[in-house]
Design a protein around this nucleic acid. Sequence first.
DNA 1: CAGTGGTCTAGACCACTTT
DNA 2: AAGTGGTCTAGACCACTGA
Lengths: 246, 246
Amino acid sequence: MIERNPSLTEQVKANLKARIIKGDFTDGKIPAENELATELRVSRTTVRDALSRLEHEGTIFRKQGAGTFVNERGLQIKSRLEEIWSYESVLQDHGYNPSIRMLSVATKAAEAPYCDDLEIVSGEPLVVMRKLFLENSKPVILTVNRIPERYLRVPASMDSTAPLFQFLETHGNRHLAYYLSEIEPVVLDGVQARLLGVTVGTPAIAFQEIGYDRDNTPVVRATSYFRDDLLRFRLIRRSAGVRKTP
Amino acid sequence: MIERNPSLTEQVKANLKARIIKGDFTDGKIPAENELATELRVSRTTVRDALSRLEHEGTIFRKQGAGTFVNERGLQIKSRLEEIWSYESVLQDHGYNPSIRMLSVATKAAEAPYCDDLEIVSGEPLVVMRKLFLENSKPVILTVNRIPERYLRVPASMDSTAPLFQFLETHGNRHLAYYLSEIEPVVLDGVQARLLGVTVGTPAIAFQEIGYDRDNTPVVRATSYFRDDLLRFRLIRRSAGVRKTP
DNA sequence: CAGTGGTCTAGACCACTTT
DNA sequence: AAGTGGTCTAGACCACTGA
């Protein structure tokens, strides 16, 4: 019985990842691609696609002529920067049990630079939501989202604590496709430090980002601050030329 | 005449990227995949691989049923975090004309935490190289590399200013395959601030990273500091599930 | 040398968008 | 309905690794 949603490739990937985490593949050697293809009744191409994704996210590594192996180190990375989609899941991946507190919801007239970033005219109504993510009553992340009001079918409220991409699917008429983010080092000012429960002047990472939908229209302008002592970001860097069928 | 190194996929990617930058494809619409395959005399799979890479790095975006389009915003991103391989090229991509100054080269006994990170015994000789990257005599990046001495065939000198991956290829017996990096917010201390030409207490991004070779052996432990006013990192984030043949 | 991953092909069918 | 990208197949040949 073959189910095609999610795609075969995603299913193969999930299957393999589960087995890797469960600890099958003793000695860290993963069966050959042809073997997996036969066993799972899919083509080698599909297996290779799945393996490529696992390799790209650091779960496995491949050696031409030798085989495919589990990457114990990659398995320990909980939050890979390129894959963050909701801060709630980031905290869960860290073993936290996050709660979310909406600090404020307000509608304001858009000013520079936000109207430029969002490609709207100056003065257009902008919904500004400030949220705090906490782990066991300790604040970890502070975010501010700015969304043009006309992208919302339903007004935002103090209860709109769902992840933003979900919120936009249920309350909005644009769906988030990707974020373009800048990483900025800051020292927290009085307000930020108080909300995050640290002393003024603590260094922190800030994300300055714009979220776009499938049509490449800017949908949200977000700024987020992270407590480095509770949440440290990691990533894998490769030479661009060495990527294998990525 | 078909040359197979670099791979066809890379050649197609390079070809398309050049045409995109040159400004062919007026109105931002890129020809259909079948069309490109015919024109370039390769299979559609190869074209798709190339387009997937361009999409992943933000150069284009695709809409099922509609077509493939140039992403003007992505084109403006000079240094994508996941793809940094040499700081020299990062600065060049920013339009800078970088120079490199070796500050010091020394051999010391490895201590914690470096011996753990590099999986060597405490006390093993470690070559420590401190480099400064400058743009027009303004310092931009400060890096410290720690390499187990036994991975070098030739001793490092004050002239070893080549990018580290290149240096290891010519002077070492291990080749860098990937870095695993942590992103840390810091305020620069006296020494760092003086070297980078900013005031003490300036916030900055630091990379704490370990470079591995193909066999997953740790080869180098590096720490780097960046002047945010001269070099800002960007990245693209996508939901993990939505990736297309990445 | 046999076995592995790396690349590429040609073709099929599907889901979606546009006209 | 026509055209686009999304997925998948089966098979080929190559380059590299290890015994």
